[in-house]
Simulated scan of single mutants.
Amino acid sequence: MKTTGNTILITGGGSGIGRELARELHALGNTVIVAGRTSASLNETIKDRDGMHARTLDVTNAEDIARFAAELVKDFPALNTLFNNAGIMAKEDWLADPVDLTITENTITTNVLGPMRLTAALITHLRAQPVARVVNVTSGLAFVPLAHTPAYSASKAAMHAWTQSLRYLLQDTNVEMIELAPPGVRTDLTPGQSTREVYMPLKDFIAETMESFSIEDTPDEVAVERAKMLRSAEREGRFDQTFKMLNDSYQG
Rank of each mutant, 00 (worst) to 15 (best):
A27N: 13
T190M: 15
L118G: 03
E197D: 15
L180E: 07
D64H: 14
T7F: 10
L79S: 05
D93C: 09
V112M: 11
L9F: 10
G13W: 04
F205Y: 15
Q241F: 06
D93M: 10
T104Y: 14
L101F: 15
L146A: 14
L57D: 00
I108A: 03
Q171E: 12
D217K: 14
K47V: 02
I17H: 07
K91R: 13
L202Q: 10
R226A: 15
I65Q: 00
R127E: 14
T60N: 12
L57G: 02
E105R: 12
S194A: 15
N84D: 03
F239N: 01
Q241C: 02
E211N: 05
T81S: 06
I65F: 04
D93W: 11
A161N: 09
K91F: 03
M210L: 14
T31P: 04
G192Q: 06
I17A: 05
R235G: 11
L169M: 10
R226H: 10
N6T: 11
A227C: 10
I8A: 05
L57C: 07
P115M: 01
L21T: 05
T31L: 05
M159E: 00
P182N: 05
G14L: 09
R196A: 13
T173H: 03
F205R: 01
A70P: 02
L21H: 14
A223C: 14
D75M: 02
L169Y: 04
E20D: 15
D58W: 08
P115F: 03
N80E: 01
T60K: 09
R55M: 14
N136C: 01
S212K: 12
I108W: 08
